[in-house]
Write a protein that binds this DNA or RNA. Sequence first.
DNA 1: CTAATGCATTAGTCAACACTAATTTTATCG
DNA 2: CGATAAAATTAGTGTTGACTAATGCATTAG
Lengths: 109, 109
Amino acid sequence: MTEAAAINAVMRTLADPTRRAVFERVVKSNEITVVELTRGSGVTQGAISQHLKSLKLAGLVAERPEGRNVYYRAEPEGLAPLVDWMSHYGVFWRERFANLRTLLKEIDP
Amino acid sequence: MTEAAAINAVMRTLADPTRRAVFERVVKSNEITVVELTRGSGVTQGAISQHLKSLKLAGLVAERPEGRNVYYRAEPEGLAPLVDWMSHYGVFWRERFANLRTLLKEIDP
DNA sequence: CTAATGCATTAGTCAACACTAATTTTATCG
DNA sequence: CGATAAAATTAGTGTTGACTAATGCATTAG
């Protein structure tokens, strides 16, 4: 996948609020099943599975089948295209770099 | 505009490749007019104006009318919701923080 | 003043897509 | 073996949205 295609896929995948909410729940959970994701999502199980498929194709989540359940987890490399894009247009970060500094301290104290 | 609405607007606005390309050209130019943006964009002038309207509503660009021309420039605060969102789900940045460190050095040497 | 230029806006069209309901598949439980 | 449960998939539907062509509206040029 080329660079432009990657950022395209990630942006497009995260643009939908429902799908982004699914991703956020996957991030916050270490591992989470489809039924758990469906609960309180406001959409049907089929919709959740479709969103998970999109997220998987974009490289944002990965799956681990176990018996009847399929556990989903976030894929660390998935957001890299977005980070790269923001690095490239990072002139905008200047006014926010205090936040980044704080974040870096949390990451690598 | 609430936090969720802001990230929603930015993500949604940048999801379209054509519109994102317009934004990138605005970023790279200090100021740029609509005709210049239209040239080589592959779409009509009307489409460019529509994309600029979306970008403006999302807070990503600002305009400066001057005579017949309207000069567009990037709005620094516009990407803040995206930065905040990535900070919040920044667990993924760990594998990339070397890049961020380099970027920070460029910003604040 | 008239023509031309830059930009915005409108109406209409076509494709993409998020969703539901239903079905299928696979796997566990009694 | 049924029966149940988790998950994926399919077909069908409604909506959104990106685009064009055309028009409108200023502003500058001749």
